[in-house]
Design a protein around this nucleic acid. Sequence first.
DNA 1: GTTGAGCGTT
Length: 249
Amino acid sequence: MSHFGRSGPPDISDTYSLLVLNITFRTTADDLFPLFDKYGKVVDIFIPRDRRTGESRGFAFVRYKYADEAQKAVERLDGRVVDGREITVQFAKYGPNAERIQKGRVVETVPRSRHRSRSRSPRRRYRDDYRERDSRRRSRSRSRDRYRERDRDGRGRSRSPSASPNYSKGRGRDRYDDERRSRSRSVDSASPRRSRSPRRSRSPTRSPREDGSPDRRSHDRRSPTQSASPRGRPADSRSHSPRNSGVDE
DNA sequence: GTTGAGCGTT
């Protein structure tokens, strides 16, 4: 029986949940089962996976039947190197349904008024952005992220292209404006036009193919009635034929 | 092929 988590939660009446962190992304419940089962009776092992790719998130939940065994497993497997990585085994603090867990065991269902538990770190929920279904925003976000990364490096610190923006902007613009006004109007006219020339209608930071998102909602937004059917028999075209009723079809 | 703080499903 290695179908853990395939049939949902079996029974959390008297089970002690252990949280296993720092496991590899390839470690599965079947790999953890023999390890944890050696120290006690494991009733269920669940490893949260991603909805899109189905990869492990890096941690697992091991449910023991007895607290003493769970404790023993924690003491024994905590810090153990599994698959080349040191895992961290500890008692789970939260339950699947926001239940309060005491020593790894579900003791009470937290009412809707007690929400001060899950707010430990406002970091992003998951590594995947499948929760934020926004392509336009994501594109911009990514760009900014990249810039930030560069900034962190300290290499792209040239954020001052102009020695003195104030001087250049204020005085330069004033002078330019004065000169432009004093000079001629033809230049002013040709100025915006030339500027438009080199600017091509193209998005430099926009890529046609981003990630192969298979779950794209706009998979097929074609109208069922406007199908590209070769049978789009135009009435006006057939109009010139008086006897076309039942002849063609 | 990648990543690494954290708390969970039919």
